[in-house]
Write a protein that binds this DNA or RNA. Structure first.
Length: 541
RNA sequence: GCUCCGGUAGCUCAGAUGGAUAGAGCAACGGAUUUCUAAUCCGUCGGUCACAGGUUCGAGUCCUGUCCGGAGUACCA
């Protein structure tokens, strides 16, 4: 419908020799203003030097609309043109949705394109916290949106097991191990105090009881890493999140990729030595200060491996690279992108999604968190308390740009009056009606007379359902996925209102069949939407 | 100081490409069920869209400045 109107009007504008640049069709908020509307006449007032109402009239008098698509149109002050869809066209679209079934909502924008989404990427020093949860769900859902748009998607987890953090972790495990063995040992300063390390130490003691304080730290480091990664992967799996690739920073050193980046930047005269360190001359690229690439200790900063890693992403042939970061990384990517640009890569392909922090609340109390001190609520604990569906929904129902207040008390209480259940209930409600119809022996197929669907609540429901594919595209274009839960919520509202006003199963068999057919379409739309969100789709509640 | 994010109803937040009377949930109050699931629906109350200018037919939305909150501004990641 939208494409049809755009084409028709654009053609007419060309005929009139008026610019079509600001031609846009939107869905009016109020049903009485039509199904589609354009303000193009008002935009042309200046160019055409005529009153908008007159312009609208001139445009419309030269167009013949197919009555099977546009039932009528009107001009409304101060110059809107409103179009009303023909019932035939609506019926046609409902049938199409049922035909498409699992495909409804998908598009082919990313057909034959490869995309990578990097998310979570927490170093394996402890279990995932409530803070990591937002990024986990955000990244996974973004990846789903890309898949629904035809991209071949790689979900990737990048981690660093080379630096100081991991050394501390190894030392902490060694201390725990020796203590368990009967040789009380103090945790190192800034060591990791979490109980999970005691568990891992206990397992290690069973498997390798012969280790001592002279054993290579590497043994403890690697054991800790493996153990903690298992915990992290288990947590993610509980939420249905599975990464295709775990990319290890160490490999960049082993393969000489770090050195390659350094020499590439050297060739561009963007590297110099100073104060015993190696610097990236970012001031030459428009930044306000230079950055250290290799510390005076000889260890690179995170920046250098990040550049090497992203270079590898490009070389792996991704057409779209999405990096999901927390707000604390907000300053780390501009110089990384600048370096890639210098190395000749098209950084337009990189989309950085920054999300603001999660503030964890217990009632009015802010819960302070520190991984090292083990003062945190783990994602696992949260999942235990409120369940996967609630966790997934809550993390993405708000814009990533907004701070998220996660009130634990509220989340726990919200097992009854919760937007997630509202959505699921809409689906279960339809399922129940369809079951009932089957019991009554009411059958229906694509030959039902859909022109019987005429009431305002019914049309509102249909129109809401028809915007689903647009919402997927919008999420893709903006990489802002909170639009989807917001949309599904309003679809559920439309369903509940319809349910309240119109009885589906009645003595009027043709009408019952038409409504059942509609509900079948609504049901699969809800299901597809919940699938994108990774939320379960109950047949009964 | 500089950079990024936010400021919309009592609270938590939606408001894409500037459009028609700024919305939802929660909270408060009042209604609806002989009927397909009341985990639902309807109504009432509630607004200086932080503030001040500007751009134009039209600004919550774009521009400039100010104020408030958060994040960053490392030879941590």
């Amino acid at each position: 419908m939208k494409n049809y109107l755009e084409k028709k009007i654009a053609a007419r504008l060309e005929e009139l020799n008026w610019p079509a640049s600001d031609l846009q069709l939107s869905r009016p908020k109020k049903a009485e203003n039509g199904d589609w509307s354009t303000s193009v006449a008002m935009g042309l007032a200046r160019v055409a030097r005529q009153a908008p109402l007159k312009i609208a009239e001139t445009i419309l008098t030269g167009i013949d609309f197919d009555p099977h698509i546009v039932s009528r149109y009107e001009i409304a002050p101060p110059g809107f043109i409103n179009f009303f869809q023909a019932p035939d066209f609506l019926a046609h679209q409902i049938r199409q949705i049922v035909d498409l079934d699992h495909q409804y909502g998908r598009n082919e924008i990313g057909k034959d394109l490869k995309a990578q989404v990097e998310f979570v990427s927490a170093n394996p020093t402890g279990p995932l916290t409530v803070g990591h949860g937002r990024q986990s769900v955000l990244g996974d859902t973004l990846a789903s949106i890309l898949e629904w748009s035809g991209y071949e998607v790689t979900r990737e987890y990048y981690f660093n097991n080379a630096g100081r953090q991991m050394r501390k972790l190894g030392e902490s495990l060694r201390a725990r191990y020796l203590t368990l063995k009967g040789e009380p040992t103090e945790l190192p300063e800034d060591g990791y105090q979490g109980a999970y390390l005691i568990e891992i130490a206990r397992e290690l003691l069973v498997q390798k009881p012969e280790l001592s304080d002279t054993t290579d730290l590497k043994v403890f480091k690697e054991y800790a890493e493996t153990g903690i990664f298992q915990i992290i992967k288990d947590t993610l799996a509980r939420m249905g999140i599975i990464h295709d690739v775990f990319y290890n920073e160490n490999s960049l050193y082993d393969d000489g990729k770090i050195e390659e980046v350094l020499s590439l930047l050297r060739q561009k005269n963007l590297v110099y030595e100073g104060d015993g360190a190696t610097w990236f001359k970012t001031t030459g690229l428009g930044f306000d200060q230079d950055r250290v690439l290799v510390k005076s200790t000889g260890e690179p900063t995170y920046r250098l491996p990040d550049m090497a890693y992203h270079r590898e992403k490009f070389k792996r042939g991704f057409d779209l690279i999405v990096d999901v970061f927390g707000a604390d990384h907000q300053d780390t990517y501009p110089d990384v992108l600048a370096a890639l640009n210098v190395m000749g890569f098209d950084t337009e392909k990189v989309k950085v999604v920054i999300h603001q922090f999660v503030t964890l609340m217990r009632g009015d109390e802010v819960v302070k968190m520190s991984t090292r001190k083990a003062e945190f609520v783990t994602l696992d604990e949260l999942l235990d308390e409120v369940g996967v569906d609630v966790v997934r929904y809550f993390y993405i129902m708000r814009s990533a740009n907004s701070h998220l207040n996660f009130d634990l008390d509220l989340a726990k209480r919200q097992t009854e009056e919760n937007p997630v259940f509202y959505l699921q209930y809409a689906h279960a409600r339809i399922a129940s009606i369809l079951r009932k119809a089957e019991e009554r022996g009411i059958t229906f197929d694509e030959t039902v007379d859909l022109s019987l669907l005429v009431e305002p609540e019914t049309l509102a429901l249909i129109n809401e359902m028809l915007t689903f594919p647009e919402m997927i595209v919008r999420c893709l274009r903006t990489l802002e996925i909170h639009h989807l839960p917001t949309y599904l919520y309003s679809l559920a509202t439309a369903l509940h209102k319809f349910y309240t006003e119109q009885r589906v199963i009645s003595e009027n068999i043709p009408l019952s069949q038409a409504r059942l057919f509609l509900l079948k379409a609504v049901k699969l739309t809800l299901r597809n939407g919940l699938e994108v969100l990774g939320i379960s789709v109950p047949e009964r509640m």
